[in-house]
Amino acid sequence: MAQESYSNLLVFGASGTVGGLVALAAHERGAKIWLAMRDTSKAIKAIPNDVEKAGNFVRIQADLTDPTSVANAVAHSGAKAAFIYLVLAASDHQRASLKALRDGGVENIVFLSSLGVKVEGAALRAIPPSKLMWFRNAQVEIAIEDLAFPHFTALRPASFASNYINAGLDRSSTPPKATIIFEDAQADNIAPEDIAGVGAVVLLTPPTAGKTTLYLSNTAAETRTAKDSWALIKQITGRADIDTTPTSPEAWVQKVVAQGMPEAFPRFYLGVLDDSKRGLVGPEYEAGAANIRKYLGREPMGFVEYLEKHKVEWQNI
């Protein structure tokens, strides 16, 4: 049987880091891209304006918490493949919007999940709500399984190399301050470009019928502590002014809560960081680097290469 392929794609979350890069990578492989956005006037950082204007991109209004808008986007685009991401605000774990995709004729779903979800089948359904982010991602995976899309790929990446600049830097301080809670917490620093590259490949051509789980991570040699990662950031980007004084766990929790985040989320994240001190080992990490090689035909992008590529962003902070 010939392998299924798609060239008319609906990409949700294009204004985000991975979503935008998925759209760009799929477009570079010849696909027409419908950029499904809550706000179609929002800037798309990953896609230069001239590339978007000259390319086969179309912006379309759609919100994964609004099934009607999703149904309209599918009907208007005629797309049979869609890239989606986790929306914490979706009280039904996105089931209604996923049903709108399925009812509209979408056959191939690629979902940006998390490496923290390390199980399948009955174990996937047994992840308790106390696991927070793992539970949320698992529930979306379960909803996609239940709706029986012909093709479903769950991308389960490890620690994004972009987390440092996107979520780990307090720009309100002068100089900007790094968020370092445990200096010995470890991360693999996988480049979003690698996650998106694999996502684009399987969005165009799903690996198999039914569900495929793809763990994605950097090589073991790229695993670094928070202290070492920030030292490298300062060295490569020239931002020696960044304050890398650690923040106490309690001070960080209180700061995040004051910004409106329910306390359970930072408490959960502290546990994840604490666990990472013991090292990033296991079959998921081994498979993660191998999947980059398999689907992109090269080694995962190293952290130094990633920082060199994004040096200007750091210098413009």
Rank of each mutant, 00 (worst) to 15 (best):
Arg278Ala: 15
Leu169Gln: 03
Trp230Glu: 10
Pro266Ile: 07
Ile33Gln: 03
Gly168Pro: 08
Ser173Asp: 00
Ile165Phe: 14
Ser130Met: 02
Ala79Ser: 14
Gly20Glu: 07
His76Asn: 12
Val253Gly: 03
Ser69Cys: 06
Pro192Val: 05
Ala122Asp: 15
Asn291His: 11
Gly297Arg: 03
Ala79Asp: 04
Arg136Gln: 15
Val140Trp: 02
Ile127Ala: 06
Leu169Asp: 03
Gly116Lys: 01
Ala62Lys: 08
Ile33Gly: 03
Gln3Pro: 07
Pro128Lys: 10
Ile317Phe: 01
Ala185Lys: 02
Ala46Cys: 04
Phe160Ser: 11
Ala2Cys: 00
Pro150Ser: 10
Gly104Ala: 10
Glu28Lys: 15
Gly20Ser: 10
Gln315Gly: 05
Tyr269Trp: 13
Pro129Arg: 09
Met301Val: 13
Val110Gly: 04
Ala43Gln: 12
Ser229Gly: 11
Glu141Thr: 04
Ala123Gln: 14
Asp274Asn: 13
Val58Glu: 15
Leu232Ser: 04
Thr205Val: 06
Ser97Ile: 09
Ala71Ser: 14
Gln186Ser: 01
Ile109Val: 15
Asp92His: 05
Leu101Asn: 07
Ala161Ile: 05
Ala200Phe: 06
Thr179Pro: 00
Ala82His: 09
Arg278Asn: 15
Ile33Cys: 04
Gly279Leu: 09
Pro129Tyr: 08
Gln61Val: 11
Ala89Lys: 14
Asn8Ser: 09
Asp194Asn: 09
Ile242Thr: 04
Leu280His: 04
Ala220Gln: 13
Arg38Trp: 02
Ser114Cys: 07
His310Arg: 11
Pro283Lys: 13
Val106Tyr: 07
Asn108Thr: 11
Ala123Glu: 14
Ser7Leu: 02
Thr223Gln: 13
Val87Arg: 13
Arg239His: 07
Thr223Gly: 00
Leu115Tyr: 00
Ala43Trp: 01
Asp39Arg: 12
Pro128Arg: 05
Asn291Thr: 07
Ile242Phe: 15
Pro67Val: 03
Arg267Gly: 01
Asp50Leu: 04
Ser7Lys: 14
Phe152Cys: 08
Val312Phe: 05
Ser97Gly: 14
Ala187Met: 14
Leu280Met: 12
Pro262Ser: 12
Ala287Gly: 00
Thr65Lys: 12
Pro150Asn: 10
Ser159Tyr: 15
Thr219Cys: 01
Arg298Ser: 02
Gly121Trp: 10
Val201Arg: 12
Ala187Ser: 14
Lys42Asn: 10
Glu4Leu: 00
Lys311Cys: 03
Val304Gly: 00
Thr65Ala: 11
Tyr269Ser: 09
Leu216Tyr: 10
Asn291Val: 08
Ala31Asn: 12
Asp66Ser: 06
Pro175Glu: 12
Ala191Arg: 02
Ser162Lys: 05
Gln259Thr: 10
Ala36Asn: 08
Ala36Ser: 09
Ile60Lys: 10
Leu86Lys: 07
Leu98Phe: 09
Thr65Arg: 13
Gly197Pro: 08
Val22Asn: 08
Ala287Ser: 11
Ala23Gly: 08
Pro67Glu: 01
Lys227Tyr: 01
Leu64His: 06
Asp66Pro: 07
Pro175His: 11
Gly13Gln: 03
Ala264Asp: 13
Val51Arg: 06
Gly302Lys: 07
Ala143Thr: 03
Ala90Lys: 05
Lys32Thr: 15
Arg125Ala: 15
Gly282Val: 06
Val304Trp: 00
Asp243Thr: 05
Met133Ser: 09
Glu305Asp: 15
